[in-house]
Design a protein around this nucleic acid. Structure first.
Length: 561
RNA sequence: CGGGGUAUAGCGCAGCCUGGUAGCGCGUCUGCUUCGGGAGCAGAAGGCCGUAGGUUCAAAUCCUGCUACCCCGACCA
């Protein structure tokens, strides 16, 4: 069992303040989720394990496939092959399908519903912080991409380009019509800074126009070499906020504010205990002065960047000549931010919570929060269904409820199916329950079945149970994360540990140096995920774990997706 | 873009070495009986074997080119 300490590092996991946040109550999440009650649920679930499980490694054994084929288990266990497990979970939960175009995925209804829940929650948080939605076009004039030097560098290699506006039939099928070539090629947006700042130039002239706080929900295209469902796809859905401010301080504050919005959302709604930090120059967004990040730890100890928020300085304002007249009548370039999260968050949820039985979803974003499986025998079907309808109507107003009344599957088959799909709470309703006036419940997190009486307070009890599951998921994830953050003082210690366990995060004193960073990446594949916002004072008076020079920062190193 | 592999029914595979016109499991459809942890029986549908050419009386099978996909690296939210 790995534990969270090492030789001389002081043996602590991440700064206490980060952990404190785990005690924050799970806030109300959207109207479908129940109210938050202080009391724990009536023992529906196992308590979190005292010792978090070891990291789940990928051994890539061909035996995984054999074991899978020979049993009814359609999912490769995590400890056999984590990457394969991830794909199996997604397939058996019916979240996506592949597309005829390489690297693109179809979001099927069950997968898209998770995104819809994420979107609804985040959108409310954006509105609450004063932002408005708008929509900017998919196509960007090619010349726009070359306006900001860093930005070009970052995106040029992965842009899809539209060059024609018409097809022409030939003997070999249709081809772009040479007569219909565009004057200037159009780039399919990889992100929208350029077109948005072009437009902002037309909209901003006075300090009275600021701040301009706009978000858009959109798709973007980045022609990636290697893709994985949710984590990296050629086209993905996201939101991108783009704001313009009169002062540097205001823009910096905005970038930090939105980072905090993301963090709260991840902790409260996704139950993913992300750490906030700043990116090094190496990992910074192309065109940003500072990039803030939220990083999550997956079950194999790898890091996943779950969202970013950028302070863009005046880079785009200069590139697109966006100025405003201040109160003194002088012209100034405006200050900018941008921030985004994408469908990658769904990948984070999967790799944070799911198990060898399949998908596990936090109630707050589960498309189906409660599934009711009626069990009928012979002539009792009508009686059971009448009762089930009553239960469903007691819950339907507050929760996303599904009654599975298919008659071609036995109840057991339905249990397995809904478990694979991540439904947090299952209710079994048969003749015995009708007679007893109860429903038999089981949490997706395991533990014994338990009965809830069918009465006016059923919805409240279900709300408590779902809140309990939500809370338990977060606690479990925090425990796993904290058990796998290591403090080390020497580089070879990190390298050895990484080799031995395949994952884990390493919080180390570090002297900021891009070359050393690259050397470490080449040597052991670990990169600096961020300089965490919390605990930077710990660097004072210490020496860099790699170079021995005075430490400038505390850094978190990890292997990352 | 380098290195390796695969391509046969919706999915997973066998058949190829030793040419003779395609099979298994799961799934799907119909009917009946079932239903408290992955139902049973009976019947049925579904594939010009990735693609173009070559050898042959005859090609899923042998030969050549092409394409696509997967895995491993370099790039990335």
């Amino acid at each position: 069992m790995v534990t969270g300490h090492s030789g001389a590092g002081g043996g602590h996991s991440l700064p206490g303040r980060v952990r404190l946040a785990s005690t924050r109550p799970v806030h109300r999440r959207g109207k479908a989720a129940g109210p938050v009650l202080a009391r724990p649920p009536p023992q529906p679930c196992d308590p979190p394990a005292e010792d978090p499980p070891p990291l789940l490694r990928s051994i890539h054994s061909s035996e995984a496939a054999v074991a899978k084929a020979e049993s009814k288990q359609p999912i490769t266990p995590r400890d056999q092959d984590y990457a394969r497990w991830y794909q199996d979970v997604i397939a058996s939960a019916d979240l996506v399908d592949s597309s005829p175009v390489r690297g693109c995925m179809v979001l099927k209804p069950h997968g898209f519903a998770v995104w819809e829940a994420i979107r609804a929650d985040l959108d409310a948080r954006f509105k609450a912080t004063g932002h408005q939605n708008a929509y900017f076009p998919l196509f960007i004039p090619q010349s726009f991409l070359s306006r900001e030097a860093e930005h070009v560098e970052g995106f040029a290699k992965e842009c899809a380009v539209v060059t024609h506006h018409r097809l022409k039939a030939t003997d070999d099928g249709v081809v772009p019509d040479p007569a219909a070539k565009l004057e200037e090629p159009l780039v399919v947006r990889p992100t929208s800074e350029t077109i948005i700042w072009h437009m902002y130039g037309r909209w901003i002239s006075s300090w009275r126009d600021l701040p301009l706080l706009i978000n858009q929900w959109a798709n973007v295209v980045r022609w990636e070499m290697r893709t994985r469902p949710f984590l990296r796809t050629a086209e993905f859905l996201w939101q991108e906020g783009h704001t313009a401010h009169a002062t540097r301080a205001e823009a910096e504050e905005e970038a930090r504010r939105m980072l905090q919005v993301y963090k709260d959302f991840c902790w409260e709604t996704l139950a993913v205990p992300v750490v906030t930090g700043v990116k090094t120059a190496t990992e910074r967004f192309a065109g940003a002065d500072d990039t803030y990040t939220i990083e999550g730890m997956m079950q194999n100890g790898w890091a996943l960047q779950c969202g970013t928020s950028h302070f863009l300085g005046q880079n785009f304002a200069r590139a697109f000549d966006v100025t405003f007249q201040n109160r003194e009548g002088e012209l100034e370039h405006v200050w900018a931010t941008s921030w985004g999260v994408s469908t990658r968050l769904i990948g984070a949820v999967i790799m944070t919570h799911s198990d060898d039985q399949g998908l596990v979803l936090p109630p707050a974003v589960a498309p189906v929060q409660v599934v009711i499986v009626p069990i009928w025998r012979g002539d009792r079907k009508a009686m059971v269904m009448e009762y089930v309808d009553r239960v469903a109507s007691l819950l339907g107003g507050r929760f996303r409820v599904r009654v599975d009344d298919r008659d071609n599957l036995k109840p057991g088959a339905k249990y397995f199916e809904w478990e694979r799909k991540g439904v947090p709470l299952r209710m079994e309703v048969g003749p015995r329950d009708v007679e007893g006036g109860v429903v038999m419940c089981r949490s997706r997190l395991g533990g014994d079945k338990f009965k809830l009486p069918v009465g006016d307070d059923l919805a409240d009890r279900v709300g408590e149970t779902l809140d309990g599951i939500q809370r338990q998921l977060l606690e479990r994830a925090v425990a796993l994360r904290d058990a796998h953050i290591f403090e080390v003082d020497r580089y070879d210690e990190m390298k050895a540990r990484l080799q031995e366990q395949g994952g884990g995060w390493f919080r180390v004193p570090w002297h900021d140096d891009a070359e050393a960073e690259a050397a470490i990446k080449a040597d052991c594949k670990a990169t600096i995920r961020c300089y965490p916002l919390e605990g930077q004072e710990d660097a004072a008076g210490r020496t860099c774990f790699y170079s021995g020079r005075p430490a400038t920062h505390m850094a978190i190193f990890a292997r990352a997706y």
